[in-house]
Measured scan of single mutants.
Amino acid sequence: TFEVERIVRKKIVHGNTSYLVKWKNYSSKDNTWETEDDIRTKYGDLVDDFEK
């Protein structure tokens, strides 16, 4: 199971928000862009903290 360590960046393309996710126990080269809906479902607190 993958676990988010932190959110690195945010991008908005054509009105759709995605977050660059750093995965726990993986290197930064393994970071992936994930949709806001996918990340918010399980890691809403991390998204809220990133947006502060």
Rank of each mutant, 00 (worst) to 15 (best):
K22L: 04
K11W: 05
K24L: 11
R6D: 09
S28H: 13
D49V: 10
F50E: 01
V13A: 08
E5F: 02
K22H: 05
F2I: 13
R40L: 08
D45V: 10
L46K: 07
T41S: 13
I7H: 00
T17K: 07
V8W: 03
T17F: 04
E34R: 06
Y26H: 15
L20C: 15
E3G: 06
W33I: 00
S18V: 15
D30W: 15
R9I: 06
E3N: 04
Y19V: 00
R40N: 06
K10P: 00
I39V: 09
V47C: 04
L46E: 04
K24N: 05
T41V: 13
S18C: 15
D45K: 13
L46F: 07
D30T: 07
W23L: 03
D37V: 11
E3C: 10
K11T: 07
K52W: 07
E36C: 06
T32D: 01
K42W: 10
R6W: 10
D48K: 10
E3V: 09
Y43F: 11
R9N: 12
V47M: 08
D45H: 14
I39W: 00
L46C: 05
G15D: 05
D30A: 14
I7G: 00
V8R: 01
D45M: 09
Y26V: 14
E36T: 03
W33T: 01
T32S: 10
V8N: 01
S27D: 15
F2C: 15
K29P: 06
D38Y: 14
I12Y: 07
I39L: 15
Y26A: 13
D48M: 09
F50L: 03
S27F: 06
S28K: 09
V21E: 02
R40H: 04
Y43W: 14
D38R: 11
Y26F: 13
T32G: 01
D37L: 12
S27C: 09
K29V: 10
V4G: 03
D48V: 07
K11C: 15
Y43T: 03
K42R: 11
I7Y: 00
D30R: 11
G15E: 04
E34D: 01
W23S: 00
N16W: 08
T41F: 12
E34C: 15
T32R: 03
T1L: 12
R40C: 05
N16I: 15
V13C: 14
K11F: 04
K22M: 08
K24M: 09
K52A: 11
F50T: 02
F50M: 02
V13I: 11
S28G: 09
E5V: 04
K24S: 05
K22Q: 11
R6H: 07
K22S: 05
V4Q: 03
W23V: 02
Y26S: 14
I7D: 01
E34H: 10
K42E: 08
S28T: 08
K29Q: 12
F50I: 02
K22R: 05
G44N: 13
D45F: 13
E3P: 05
E3T: 06
D48P: 04
V8E: 06
V21T: 02
I12E: 10
K11M: 10
R6K: 15
D45E: 12
T35S: 13
T17M: 05
G44K: 14
N16S: 11
R40E: 03
K42A: 12
I39T: 04
N31A: 10
N16E: 14
R6T: 09
Y19G: 00
E36D: 06
L20M: 06
T35I: 07
V21H: 01
K24W: 07
T41Q: 13
D37W: 12
E5W: 04
E3W: 05
K24G: 05
K52E: 08
E36Y: 08
S27N: 09
N31T: 09
K52T: 09
F2G: 14
K24D: 04
Y43K: 03
K10F: 04
D37E: 13
D30F: 15
K29M: 12
K10T: 04
D30L: 14
S27G: 11
Y43M: 04
T32L: 02
W33E: 00
D38G: 05
K10N: 10
K10G: 02
E34I: 15
V8C: 12
Y43D: 04
Y43H: 08
S27M: 08
N16Y: 11
K24R: 10
W23C: 03
K52P: 04
W23P: 00
D49R: 10
G44W: 12
N25Y: 10
Y26P: 11
E34L: 15
N31Q: 08
N31W: 12
I39A: 08
D30K: 14
N25I: 07
D38K: 12
K52M: 12
N31E: 08
T35Y: 09
L20H: 02
K52F: 08
V21W: 00
I39H: 00
F2S: 13
Y43N: 08
V47T: 04
G15Y: 04
L20D: 01
Y19I: 02
N31M: 14
K29W: 12
Y43P: 01
R40M: 08
K29C: 14
S18P: 01
F2V: 11
F2R: 15
D49W: 09
Y43R: 05
K52D: 06
R9H: 08
D38S: 13
D45P: 11
K10R: 07
S28W: 15
H14T: 07
L20W: 08
Y19A: 01
T17C: 05
E51C: 04
I12M: 06
T17N: 05
T41M: 13
E34G: 02
W33K: 00
V47Y: 06
T41G: 11
D49A: 14
N25H: 11
K29N: 11
